[in-house]
């Protein structure tokens, strides 16, 4: 069984079967297939090798392959689970699944924590938070005095660092997010529920009918 199209895509490095990925994520098989359309577009925008390189990710996010950004770097690093400098299809789908509207809030909380734990210490430290605020200000061409930045960071820490040890641990992060649910709004992409409408071409070739 299988058509020429299917045989062709199986040769791409890092390709995984949509049925397998759908079983492990919030996506249906059709949605994974539609995501493959998006993945193909992103992974061939500069280097046609079926892998998303950092420059291709930046090009998709900023319309400029040279635009560096702390947060885009962090997202890329988290998507690049194998830490080999590129995002493979399976990594792309599993990571994007965190942003699916149906994914458990606990997964989103954990992903956001890892995103903001810049140095992988298991804590969001004060210096890391300040570094992120400064990066955001620079990105936005906003100018705030160091005193104001310190005050913003201090205030956030006074609310989030419940045990006052100068760093935010996972439990404190969970409590802080529970009190400030809007912090997770960028962890959900409504588009992902309509992905088969946005990228419908693969659906014509779909071998498997979704059961739900």
């Amino acid at each position: 069984m299988g058509c020429l199209f299917t045989k062709h895509i199986k040769q791409i490095p890092g390709y995984e079967e949509p049925t397998v990925l759908a079983g492990e994520t919030s996506f249906t098989v059709s949605e994974v297939e539609a995501l493959y359309e998006l993945f193909k577009k992103l992974s061939s925008s500069i280097i046609v090798d079926g892998l998303i390189h950092k420059e291709e990710f930046q090009l998709a996010l900023f319309k400029n392959s040279n635009t560096r950004n702390l947060f885009a770097d962090r997202i890329f690093d988290l998507f690049d689970v194998k830490r080999n400098g590129v995002i493979e299809f399976g990594e792309f789908v599993r990571s994007l699944s965190v942003f699916h509207p149906n994914t458990a809030i606990s997964e989103k909380i954990e992903f956001a924590f890892r995103l903001y734990d810049l140095r992988h210490t298991g804590f969001i430290e004060r210096e890391e938070l300040k570094e992120m605020v400064l990066a955001l200000l620079k990105e936005s061409d906003l100018c705030l005095s160091d005193d104001v930045v310190e005050t913003i960071v201090d205030k956030t820490f006074s609310e989030a660092d419940l045990n006052g040890d100068g760093k935010i641990d996972r439990e404190e992060w969970k409590e802080f997010v529970a009190r400030n649910p809007s912090l997770l709004k960028n962890m959900t992409l409504p588009y992902l529920k309509d992905i088969t409408i946005a990228f419908p071409s693969f659906v014509l070739y779909s071998e498997v009918e979704d059961s739900d």
Binding site: L38, N69, E139, I152, T156, L189, Y191
Partner: peptide, 25 residues
């Protein structure tokens, strides 16, 4: 008043975290 901003709220507005852009044609 900027001093009342939650630092994480501020950060979450980063364009680098707006993955919706990936879906733009």
């Amino acid at each position: 008043r900027p001093v009342m901003m939650n630092a994480f709220e501020l950060i979450s507005t980063s364009q680098g975290l707006n993955l919706g852009t990936l879906f733009e044609k």
